[in-house]
Write a protein that binds this DNA or RNA. Sequence first.
DNA 1: CCTCCAAACGCAAAGAATTTGCTTTTAGCG
DNA 2: CGCTAAAAGCAAATTCTTTGCGTTTGGAGG
Lengths: 195, 195
Amino acid sequence: MADREGCRGLGGPRPGGRSARVQASVHRAARALLARMDRAEVTIPLIAQEAGVTPSTIYRRWGELNELLADVAVERLRPDMVPVETGSGRGDLLAWAEQYAEEMSSGLGREMIRDVLAAEGADGPRRCCGYARQQIDLIAGRAEARGEAFPDIDKVLDRVIAPILFRILFDEALATEQVAGLVDCAFAAVERRAA
Amino acid sequence: MADREGCRGLGGPRPGGRSARVQASVHRAARALLARMDRAEVTIPLIAQEAGVTPSTIYRRWGELNELLADVAVERLRPDMVPVETGSGRGDLLAWAEQYAEEMSSGLGREMIRDVLAAEGADGPRRCCGYARQQIDLIAGRAEARGEAFPDIDKVLDRVIAPILFRILFDEALATEQVAGLVDCAFAAVERRAA
DNA sequence: CCTCCAAACGCAAAGAATTTGCTTTTAGCG
DNA sequence: CGCTAAAAGCAAATTCTTTGCGTTTGGAGG
């Protein structure tokens, strides 16, 4: 797990080499420090020390703390399991959305999203969106295979994911029960069409 | 406009005095620099110089650049006019949402939102959400006065505002035409109820 | 297998930003 | 008209960031 490939998106220049080792070490150090202390206390020199690396290496590679933390956050945000199967597309979506909402509402989840959004040039936000899309796509594919109607991915994004994240970022995170209403809304169109 | 009250939320300790003057000056300086150069080039010492103030004043008051920029952004994000009247609640909402989407999609809009979200302790996001709520509330009030059905504020937030901001932050900002679909969705519930 | 090359790293000095202790100014109050 | 405490200025100390240069390292071609 420690010596995985770089995950810098566009294929690390030299996968498997020292470069990859350094990146892994820095990521690990960043995660460790974030777990051990307040996010506001974490600095690049600190991470460098924890990773056994010179600060200038980090500065040259990531430019600033925020880019690095965003990079780390995107990696942590990548889904690591397939959505559970409940028997219906609607059930699958509801279960997945509830878990998603819960994970993102946590203090750590919130922090990671904000780190990803704050990064200047990176395409972190798009990648996170892509992760969600992937998962929903998978659920939709299963539903279709069963011959069920399932809403458009974009409808799900707008009506389920968007409200969940909006509330977390701008207001109060919504309770688990509220997610069901969003899923209903996403299904409203296809059900009326089917009827 | 330059010597308004502080807007630091909890009533500046000494409104009208030097404190307020300094705050206004710093805000003005920050806006000027943001207009003149790249956001990444702006630093606290620079703002301090532009404002004719020592850096330590800014550090003590705002702590870090991001807090200050968030403060400035929240102030700029505050709506400065009442939503246009089109004759119907639906038309009002559509017109307002289209303008909102356009403003927020601009480079400056995006930047301001991200500044607000990135600020640690501040309640900036909530205040921005409150601004939108206020505007919608106003539209809803007018609709109600005309005896029209109008969706819940929270429905509008979830089905119109949330998707608009979600797309801007995580993906591609949606085109003006797409906003109409969101408004339709927000009205779907009340119309079915009315029918 | 060996040699060469360029990318990435380490090191250290230079430059900027941030923090901090202390003094001075200033608005509000008795 | 002083008094007081909050806020600002100033400057030294600290910490972070940038940068130039020499060294290491992984990969490509001979």
